[in-house]
Amino acid sequence: MKISQICQILDADTLCCKELADTQVYSACGSDMMSDVLAFVKDHGILLTGLVNPQTVRTAVMMDMKGIVFVRGKKPDAAVISLAEESGIVLLTTDYRMYTACGLLYTAGLYTDGSDKV
């Protein structure tokens, strides 16, 4: 699924790296606990979170993710947006809550085939 489609499904605004909207992502994860993302996530393309600190961007960089969706209408400050720009991480913000945002993407086909159990 292209990031532009994720943006459309979640009625999201793009905060940076609009030029990367055609990037394909193959799965996603939703978490506010970055250590869990680092521990359990495999080859996930996009992170959904309610946290807006720089560590969300750094975690995405470490995991080779392509983008972050901030849920519940959250928006990071300019320093975080600038860090994401430097790192080539697309930032989106949606008014949907975490559960709904994940559900919408899942039902639209953004999930990994087979078991996703840890």
Binding site: D32, M33, M34, S35, D36, L38, A39, T49, L51, N53, Q55, T56, T59
Partner: peptide, 15 residues
């Protein structure tokens, strides 16, 4: 509240 400190740091490092 910043997304760390849940007791996964050292286990993750080891992993």
């Amino acid at each position: 509240s910043l997304g760390f400190g849940a007791g996964m740091g050292l286990p993750n490092i080891k992993k």
